[in-house]
Structures are given as structure tokens and as C-alpha cells.
Design a protein around this nucleic acid. Structure first.
Lengths: 232, 232
DNA sequence: AAAGCTATTATGTCTAGACATAAGGATAAT
DNA sequence: ATTATCCTTATGTCTAGACATAATAGCTTT
């Protein structure tokens, strides 16, 4: 059953189709790379690449000596893009406006030290910002920046562009931890976002590290009715 | 400057380190695969794999003839696992309990037809379920299943295991669209989740397709204070 | 029955070389 | 000046063969 014209993509797709059609049901063992290479009339390396991509996707599990098995309980994972506020506003075809509400330098309070792991006397820049879409409140941003990690932040003018965009240009490759939750609007949020007190709001918190040192912690609260979208 | 002992992972990490250290700043052009292969004393295919992984991560952009460039505005993307409720409860070391609240077969209402794209007379199975962690409300689930897509669902006993687990075993490889938002508890939710009316709740909606045909739409509302976590 | 050793096996990685392909650049024709 | 054509170049993919490595299965010893 040797076929012709088999790129690694063809093989990947063919194997995927056979899995979806239950020709190889969940939990079952696939033929070996050598056998598949024979069937598809190609080198083993080509089959290897095809199966490796399926393994990366979580569709199959591969183990030396055991072989390749259809994942019975594939870990579904969704990717969502960490959008810069400006971008997501502009993608809605709305006019973006940014405003710096407050800017102070403080010693990191205990809860912040515990959360991001900085030293006792660490100085942080505390910012409050508002983001608008067509002049309607879009997001209230409260942010703390570890000055030791990005000393330049002290001298940057943040009245025109948001701190997120500046930080991205400074620390483009970072890790982060992210939590989303629903909260009730308190006094401050109800004023800035123009909603009744107690209104349900979508809130995201993010802590960012660069090469192991904490850079920033940000709490973003969105306007009422905001939806975060993603697909997989 | 030829080195020794260079696996594709070493190369990937070394290149990444040079990018992070701004040896190759954002927007700049990397050496060609041939040049890097020479430097690292390995075959071009090895360099290719290393750079391909960085391209998959979004760290660099690659174009034929143009070469490999450090991505100036890397698209940050976070991956979160679509957890099965049972799993996330058990990971908290809490006892999981499930209960089927309501089960009816209906003709798809207009809003559902519009949302998932089924025919006018489509029959759907409408379910209400509750998930508990240590006997405290964890999630209220309201689900609609397109019977035409999974006819067997009619005869399945859903009083013991949740519909999600059964569907996963039937349709393990599907696409989905997912939205998260914050809502205020209405009468039903306040009763089932044991919160005051108006309490802010985290809600997720998911539409699932299998090979182009809509399978299910589910609205999951979590207990007050629930946080969705993810890292990247 | 339990523990330790060994051979086997399927995947993981690498190499050197080849051809394919997209895209930029230069040149020639309009 | 504009358009068409060809050449060059860097990445994209593939091959055949090699060695590395993890994990299983079978065998031996205790």
C-alpha cells in the first residue's frame, strides 16, 4: 500500500483523519514510524516530523520503545492572545484614548512584596490609568512596576502612551502568570468605568517576570459586559 | 568560532539568550542557517529545527530569501487548559459531586440556531447540571446538545457522569469558540450557587464543532470568587 | 516471589547532501 | 517611468543512513 507524493503535512493530516474517523480509536497504538514510512513511501524522518507535530498538539502520546498511542483524554488547550489594549480597541474600529490618572513612587506594600517577590525596601512605581474606546470607558488599569528591574521607567513620560506598551518595548520576552475573575464594582471603579456600584466586572491580574526577576503586577478591570474571546 | 556538542536545544537556547540580551535586538537580522551551522559546528538541518521552534514560539519571523528576523512586536499568547470540571475540583483536593438537574428534548430556539448554526427544526437536548466541590456549589452548567451530531446522546444515562465527560469520549477532537465574561447572579443562579442575587459571577460560554457540524453549546457559571489561572 | 541483568525495540536526534520554493534585486523591454 | 524577465539567495523540505536513549520484556539469580 505504498502511496506517492507524501509531504509531512499530508501524512500529519492523513493520520489525524484516521484518528478522527476512529480507524485508530482513542488509546490504540499506531504503526511504527518505519511501517508508516513504508506505507507512505517516504523516509522515516518525514513520518517523525508528522507524528511529532501531532504529539505537540496533544493528539498522540509518544514514548520510546512503547510507540505512538492515540491520546484518550487529550488535554484541550486554548490559546488567547495577550492583546495590548490599544490594539483590541482599534480592532473594534473604535477610537483609542489613554489617560494617566495617577503616578507615585512608593515602597512596595507587604501584599505586593508577597505577591511578586521583591525585597522589603523595594521601590515601586504605582500607576493608575484609564483606557477609552470612542470616549467610553474601556479599561481601568492599576499597575505596580519594580523600579529595580527597569530603572529607566522613572524618566519615561507615561502621559501619552500607556505603561504596557513601553514595558513591552523594554522587556519583550517575559513570563507571566495570569488570573481572571469577576468582581463587583467598588466606589473607585464605579466612577472611572461609569457603572453603578456593585456592577459585575471582568478583572484580569497579571504578574510578569523577566529572567527570573519580577517586573510588574497589573490589575485590569474592564467595562461592564466585556467578553474575552478565544478559539481552538 | 566553531563550538562543539551542539544539540538543536542548545542552539535554540543560545539564540534565545542572545535575543534576550539584545545581542540581536528586536527587528535585527540573524545570521543565515549556513553561517550558524558553521559557528555551532553542526548540520544546517539542526539549526533549522532550532530556528523553526523559535519561529513557532513567535520569537522570530522567517521568510525565504529575506532571512530570520527578531520579532519586534511578538504576539504574546497565553495557553490555558480547558479543564474538565471533575479534574479541576480534584486538583484542589476536594471531593467532586455531580448532579443532573433537568433534562428535556426541545426544538432549537431561534437564538440557539443563530448562535451555533443548526437547521430550523433541529432537535436539541437541553440539560441543567450542578457540580460541587466538597458539597459546596462549584459550577452551574446549562447545555444544549445537537442531537443530529451525536444521536447516541439520547440513550445515555447522564445522571451519574456529566455530559462533558461523555461528549469528550465521543468527540475527542473538536474545535471550539470560547468567551468569558462577568455577570450578575439572577434568581436561578443565586439559588443554585448559593449567592445573593446580583453577586458578580465568572461565566464561560463554549460552542463546539466537530468536522464542521455544531455539537454543543454550553454556559458555565462558577461560584463566587472563582479565578481562572494561566501562565506563559 | 523478588530483585537484578540484558537484549530488544521504537522513538529522538543528527549528518551530508539534494532539490523545491518564495521573494528580493538587477536587468531588459516596453 | 513602468512592467516583465531572469538570476540569486535563504529558507523549506526530503532522503538514507547512523548512533543515542528510554523503556519494556525476558531471563537469570537470589
Amino acid at each position: 500500500m505504498t502511496q506517492k507524493k507524501s509531504s509531512f503535512q499530508d501524512i500529519r493530516d492523513t493520520v489525524m483523519a484516521r484518528i478522527q474517523s476512529r480507524h485508530w480509536p482513542p488509546g490504540s497504538l499506531l504503526p511504527t514510524e518505519v511501517e508508516l514510512a513504508e506505507e507512505f513511501g517516504c523516509a522515516r524522518a518525514t513520518v517523525n516530523r508528522a507524528l511529532r507535530e501531532l504529539a505537540d498538539q496533544g493528539v498522540v502520546d509518544r514514548k520510546r520503545k512503547s510507540g505512538t498511542r492515540v491520546n484518550a483524554a487529550p488535554v484541550k488547550q486554548a490559546v488567547f492572545e495577550i492583546a495590548v489594549v490599544r490594539q483590541s480597541v482599534e480592532e473594534m474600529n473604535a477610537a483609542y484614548r489613554y489617560s494617566l490618572v495617577k503616578r507615585t513612587v512608593i515602597t512596595a506594600p507587604a501584599w505586593l512584596r508577597a505577591r511578586i517577590g521583591v525585597k522589603d525596601e523595594a521601590q515601586v512605581l504605582h500607576l493608575n490609568c484609564m483606557h477609552y474606546a470612542d470616549n467610553r470607558p474601556f479599561q481601568f488599569e492599576e499597575r505596580w512596576i519594580n523600579i529595580a528591574a527597569v530603572p529607566d521607567v522613572i524618566d519615561v513620560d507615561l502621559s501619552e502612551t500607556g505603561p504596557n506598551e513601553w514595558l513591552l518595548s523594554q522587556v519583550p520576552f517575559s513570563n507571566a502568570e495570569l488570573t481572571s475573575t469577576a468582581i463587583a464594582a467598588g466606589e473607585t471603579l464605579s466612577e472611572f468605568l461609569d457603572v453603578p456600584q456593585g456592577a459585575p466586572l471582568f478583572q484580569m491580574e497579571r504578574t510578569t517576570w523577566f529572567q527570573g526577576t519580577p517586573v510588574t503586577f497589573v490589575r485590569m478591570t474592564f467595562h461592564q459586559g466585556y467578553q474575552m474571546r478565544t478559539r481552538y
